[in-house]
Structures are given as structure tokens and as C-alpha cells.
Design a binder for these strands. Structure first.
Lengths: 345, 345
DNA sequence: CTGAAAGCGCTTACAG
DNA sequence: CTGAAAGCGCTTACAG
């Protein structure tokens, strides 16, 4: 059975294909009587619009690419879903892929997206992606794109991220305020996010005359948090507080402490970054630096849509201000009991 | 600047566009000398393949649609990522969307995918999706598709899921074996998965002369688990064991118990379904019925690829056998201490 | 092994 | 307000 095309509809309604096209795109020039006749023919023939053919001719694809590293981090899930919802509403289809933090996979995904002629790309770069690489893939073909969350050196693209230095600083201040004197930082892959968080944390603590015990960079998973605590316990006395690279790691930290008979929040304070939904749903609830993935996603979508309209804009940067969600995991031990609510953006 | 096309490459290398096309598709008939000349011209001109144009002519799109409800459930994340990896390897681009369990959103996503002429669709149906609807969207246009995880009534499509009755039965047996006498089932939206799990659980318990206290159906989130426990506590004495609709709910259950000063695993046994990665990373580690999302994803991908090749196959069903991952959350109290390892598929 | 021509299903000027 | 013709960038028969 042959596919029904615009031509069949034209014949069935006694008009030209151009007129059918006008009706389909709801261009308001068509006379009402004609329009109704065409719509009836569409109904009758079971015609289905071929957006690919349309886009091919009109040089748009109404498709956007979205690459994140790994959805097993709830932070990335929030980000991806926020972007999907916004772009969906604007009529775009989303070509999505996961780089698994692997440059080779990332490159392959970008190639496919370029060959499929997406109108633009939102990219959370793999941890070792370079600006040169992005230029070769996207810059050369002049494809609108915006980077999120992770910076690359010498960027020449739009970027949306959070002020991680500020976030670290907020947390440092808070931990010092709560009377914690020895603080360790655990987990996280070497990245701009990690070094920024660490730097801010140091600055916040320093103002109170405190320093930081850094431990080795690892990954960003719960397993990494567990491993880091196991290593910490093997090494010697525990710190008063543990600041984790992110909430995923922090949740691993809480599990490992508990497994060792140490009550998180009570015996050792624990805090994380991102304020993923799970953070407020722990007991004790986890103090966390909120980094607003939904807002990052919304901003990134907006920037991309603007750039798709006109790609001659200078590179822009949107930096989201973090905030601290104070909860029981850092306040019980210090004695300053707080009934801080959860917050969601 | 004009886009470089196959025509430019043809001119630059002194052959016809047909020959360039043969080179691009690596059809092995082209003479080596010619091939090299064309490849050089591609390099020189900076030509980039337009897969959309190619697909349009050849009636394939090399694109597959994937719709899941909500990535905030780690089970769906595993599923989505497994499918992405398999199809990516086979050269397909993935158009992904989230229905948020909303039929209207699901329908819009399906429309877009159909209009974009995807080669096939993998769908995790929203909870109230009907077979009629799917037929109207997909059946009428003869679009290959496979349903996963949730059944719809009177299906006429390929389906991959897990044997939830069997899973419930395994858990019922285990809880009875461990000496738990009063058991409650908490959470979950009304769906085939829920009623199957419940039915199996009842059967397993019944063999040991035990019955089940069912509570109301809710959602499938941690919040739902917390709310269910709060209601349970308000109502009266706690059961020996709580079987949660899924691990998400079970984790909420553990949090709520702990917040009430009740130690999960020690004071009340807790178990879930799915064996998401977090399950084995809790303390106490969570007993869970493993439902193998990665395997479901892999099977679904295979079925879809086969159906894209030939769509006249009769509907097929693949039912994955669940297994029980026994951990401390159900074994400590019963005294039968088990050092069951974690398992991942 | 290579080329000339037609065609995939639309939209886009351009006429009228 | 509507139509005839050309064209988007490829692949597909068909010749030779």
C-alpha cells in the first residue's frame, strides 16, 4: 500500500499541492471554503504529514540534540527532563544520547546529530572534552550549541552553569558556623566543578581559621562515596564533618558510615552538592548546596532557541546562583537544631 | 556560505553524483582510484553527509523513538540507557521523550515521532494508555513498535516485561521463610505490574498459611513510601515486614521508619522490587526482586530491530524471569543472617 | 565500473 | 486567493 502524500490530498480535494501545503502550515491566506475542503480530504485519505520532507525543503529540522553523560546521577535526570519539557513545548523533537563521559562516544553522538541536521545541540561535555574538539565538530559547521554544567577551557560557546565557588563558600561558612573544626572533602572526578567547589569551600572555612583535608578525586557515584569513607576509616580518626563532591557521593558516605556503626549527622556531619530530590528524603535529611538543574536546563533551552534564530550572537554565559539547603545532617551534632524545610525549584 | 553537497564533491572529483553516493555508502563496486579521488574531494570541500536527504529517498530514517514515563525512577533510567546503547551501536539515532504518565503528552510525542518518520518505537505506556489508542497512532500507519514493562489490555504488539507474579511469589516465600508473620504491601499506582506483584505475593504467603494486609495504591516514589509509612504508624501496630511496590517506595519506607525511631531491617523487615543500583548500597542493604531492566531493554531493542526488518511477524512476548536478591533488610530480624552479595546484570 | 535522469515529499518563489 | 514549476540533497533503477 502506497503512502498517502500531499499530492493525493491535492487530487482528492481538487486543488494544487501548494494549496494543501498552505493549509497544513495553517498559513491564513487560504479561503475558508478551500481550507475545509482540503481538511476533509486529509481526513478522508488518512494523510500524515511528512515533517522530514518539509524540513528538508525549508532548511530546518525542528530537532535538537541533547547529550548528557550518564542518567544514573539524579542531577542529570533533572537537567535532561527540564530541557525535554521546554523544547517539546516549542515543537522540537529531541535526539538524545549518553556519552558515559567517554569522548569517543560523545564524538560519535555529535556526528550523528550533525548528519541528521539537528537545528542545535545542548551538550554536557565529557570530562576531558576540549574546546578544539567542539570547534571541529560544531564550530566548523556553524551549528548552534550551548554547553551546560561543565566548563571547557577556552570556550567559544554559550554556557550555563552554577557558581560552584560560591556554593563551596556557602557550605564552608555553614560548617564552620555549626562548630565543626575538622572537615574532609570526598569524591568527585577531576573537573572544573570539583576544583571550584573545593576552592570555595576552602575560602569559606579560611575565614573562620579552618583548613580542609582533601582526599583523592574518585568518581561521582554512591560507590565512590562508600569507598572514600572506607579509606577514611582505615586511615585514622574521622573528621567532624564530611563535605561530599555531590549528593550521590554524600548518600554513599551516609551508607558507609552507618555500616561502620557511625551515625551520620549525629557522630559525623555530612553535606553534599546539588540538592537532588533524594537529599531531603533521607533520615537525617541531607544538607546540600542547591544547584538548580531545572533552572540550568530552562536557561540552556532559552539560549539555544535564541541562537537557532540568529547564530551571530556573541557567546553568552549564564551563571546560576546556588543556595544552601540546611538540614539535619549537619546541624544535629552542632547542637543548633534546625527544622529546615526541603526546597525544590 | 552555501552548504557543500554531493554535487560539489562530484564536480571537484570529476565524477557523477551517483558515484559519490556509492563511495559514501561504501558500496564496494567503485574502482579504487575513483574512490580515492572522491574521498580526497570530500576532505577538500569539507562535505558533510546529509542523512536526512539520504533517508528520505531510501525510505528509512535510521531513527527510533523511545518513550518512557519518568526518569526519576532509577529503574526507567537503566531501561532507557540500555536501549540507547544497543540502538546507538546499530547506527540509529534516538528520539526520546517522557510522557510523565500523561496520555496527552504520550500522544503528542507519538505524533511527532510518526511525523518525523521514525523507523520504530519502544514505548513504556502511560498507566491508562489503551490498545485502541496505540492502534490509532501506530497500528494504522503500520509503524513497528514494542511495548515494555507495562501491559495494556488486548495488546496486538510485541511486549517485553518481567514475570511480576513470579517475583511476588518469590518474595512471599522468602518473607514467610524468615519467620515474618504479618506483612503489609505498600505503594504503587494501579497498574498491571502492581496487581501482578500483589497476586504473586499473596500466593507465596498463602502456601505458608499467611495473608497480606494491603494498603491503598499511591504512587511509585520515595515520597509515596514515606507517606504510606506515616499512615501505617498512625493506624496501629506495625507489621513484621513491609513489601513495597518498588525499591523507590522501599527507600522512602526505610527513611520514614528511621525518622520514627524504628530501625529498618532490625525492627521491621523491608523489601522492594526492581533491585535498582541503590538497593544494594543501603544500610541495611535492601532485599529486592530483581527485574533486570537492562535485559528488558536489550530484548526490546532486538525485537524492534527484527520488526523493522519485517513487520509481518506475529506479535511476540518475552517474559523475563525475576530473581530474589536477599539482603540484610529482611534477614537480620529473622535471625537467619545471610551475607548475600549484591548482584547486577 | 560509471553516468544521466527520475524521484523521495514536501516548500518556495513567482504568476496570475 | 490559487497554481505550475523548480528545487531541497540525496538514492535508485537503468544504460552502457
Amino acid at each position: 500500500m502506497k503512502r498517502v502524500t500531499i499530492k493525493d490530498v491535492a487530487v482528492a480535494s481538487g486543488v494544487s499541492t501548494a494549496t494543501v501545503s498552505l493549509v497544513l502550515r495553517e498559513v491564513p491566506v487560504v479561503a475558508d471554503a478551500t481550507r475545509l475542503r482540503v481538511l476533509a480530504a486529509i481526513e478522508r485519505t488518512g494523510y500524515i504529514y511528512d515533517r522530514r520532507a518539509a524540513n528538508m525543503r525549508s532548511k530546518r529540522s525542528m530537532t535538537v540534540g541533547l547529550i548528557v553523560t550518564d542518567l544514573r546521577n539524579p542531577y542529570f535526570v533533572e537537567l535532561a527532563m527540564a530541557i525535554e519539557v521546554v523544547l517539546q513545548e516549542r515543537g522540537f523533537a529531541l535526539l538524545q544520547g549518553y556519552s558515559l563521559d567517554d569522548r569517543v562516544r560523545e564524538n560519535r553522538l555529535l556526528s550523528v546529530m550533525v548528519e541528521q541536521r539537528v537545528d542545535g545541540v545542548v551538550l554536557l561535555p565529557a570530562k576531558d572534552t576540549t574546546a578544539d574538539e567542539l570547534h571541529a565538530r560544531l564550530g566548523v559547521v556553524d551549528l548552534p550549541h550551548v554547553l551546560i554544567t561543565r566548563r571547557v577551557k577556552a570556550p567559544i560557546a554559550d554556557y550555563v552553569g552554577v557558581d560552584n565557588v560560591r556554593g563551596g563558600d556557602l557550605l564552608g561558612e555553614h560548617l564552620a558556623d555549626q562548630g565543626h573544626r575538622t572537615i574532609a572533602f570526598l569524591g568527585g572526578p577531576r573537573s572544573t566543578a570539583r576544583s571550584d567547589r573545593l576552592r570555595g569551600l576552602r575560602a569559606g572555612l579560611k575565614r573562620h581559621g579552618l583548613a580542609l583535608d582533601e582526599t583523592v578525586a574518585t568518581g561521582a557515584t554512591r560507590e565512590d562515596g562508600i569507598a572514600a569513607v572506607d579509606a577514611l576509616i582505615a586511615h585514622g580518626p574521622l573528621p567532624d564533618a564530611i563535605a561530599a563532591y555531590n549528593d550521590n557521593v554524600a548518600l554513599g558516605v551516609m551508607t558507609a558510615l552507618r555500616a561502620a556503626g557511625i551515625e551520620p549527622g549525629h557522630d559525623v556531619a555530612v553535606a553534599g552538592f546539588d540538592d537532588i530530590p533524594e537529599a531531603s528524603l533521607q533520615h537525617p535529611a541531607l544538607t546540600s548546596v542547591a544547584t538548580y538543574p531545572r533552572r540550568v536546563g530552562a536557561e540552556a533551552s532559552t539560549l539555544l532557541l535564541e541562537r537557532i534564530e540568529r547564530n551571530d550572537l556573541a557567546p553568552r554565559r549564564v551563571i546560576i546562583e546556588p543556595s544552601l539547603a540546611v538540614r539535619a545532617s549537619t546541624t544535629v551534632r552542632g547542637g543548633v537544631s534546625t527544622t529546615s524545610g526541603s526546597r525544590r525549584d
